[in-house]
Amino acid sequence: KTVEVNGVKYDFDNPEQAREMAERIAKSLGLQVRLEGDTFKIE
């Protein structure tokens, strides 16, 4: 899975870890996480 923030992509081998990281980043920035294919987009 991939986490994308402001056009910057971070790859994770563990999908659960990617989801947790995406949620943590989104919460700290006051944004939403949206799953698009294999990418968690933070917008």
Rank of each mutant, 00 (worst) to 15 (best):
N14V: 07
S28P: 03
L31P: 00
E23M: 10
M21Q: 07
D38T: 09
V33E: 02
N6L: 14
D38F: 07
Q32A: 13
D13V: 09
G37K: 06
E4M: 13
L29S: 04
V8H: 10
V8M: 11
P15D: 09
K41S: 04
N14S: 14
A22I: 05
V5P: 00
P15C: 15
M21H: 10
A22S: 03
R34W: 09
V5K: 01
D11T: 15
E23Y: 14
L35Q: 09
K41A: 03
E20S: 08
Y10E: 02
L31Q: 06
E20D: 10
R24L: 13
E43L: 11
R24V: 09
E36A: 05
A18E: 00
I42R: 00
F40Y: 15
D13E: 12
G7K: 05
D38C: 14
D13W: 07
T39H: 06
Q32R: 10
K27D: 10
A18W: 05
A22L: 05
D13L: 09
G30Q: 06
N6W: 13
Q17R: 11
L35E: 11
K41V: 15
K1S: 13
V5Q: 02
N14H: 08
V3K: 01
L31K: 05
E43R: 06
A22E: 00
F12A: 04
D13T: 11
A26R: 01
T39Q: 04
D38P: 04
Q32P: 11
G37L: 05
E16D: 13
Q32C: 14
M21P: 00
M21F: 15
T2E: 04
E36D: 13
Y10A: 03
D38V: 05
S28L: 15
S28T: 12
Y10T: 05
E36V: 11
R34Q: 07
T2K: 13
K27Q: 13
V33D: 01
T2R: 13
V3F: 04
M21I: 09
N14K: 08
D11Y: 15
Y10W: 09
D13G: 08
Q32G: 10
I25W: 12
V8A: 07
K1W: 15
L35G: 02
R34D: 04
G7V: 02
Q32W: 08
F12L: 05
E36I: 08
R34C: 11
M21W: 15
L29Q: 06
K27Y: 10
G37V: 04
E16W: 10
E4Q: 09
V5S: 04
Q17F: 09
L35C: 11
D38E: 08
V3R: 00
P15N: 08
E4G: 02
Q17A: 12
Y10P: 00
V3Q: 01
A18M: 03
A18R: 01
K1M: 15
M21D: 03
A18C: 09
Q17C: 15
D13F: 07
V5Y: 14
V3D: 01
G37C: 12
A26T: 01
R24T: 11
L31D: 01
F12G: 00
T39R: 04
E43N: 09
V8E: 08
D13H: 09
K1T: 14
L29T: 05
D13A: 12
D13S: 11
G7F: 04
F12D: 00
Q17M: 13
E36N: 05
I25E: 04
L35A: 05
D11C: 14
D38A: 07
V5M: 07
E23H: 12
K27T: 11
D13P: 10
P15T: 11
K27H: 12
D11R: 15
A18F: 04
A18S: 01
E23C: 14
K27S: 12
I25L: 10
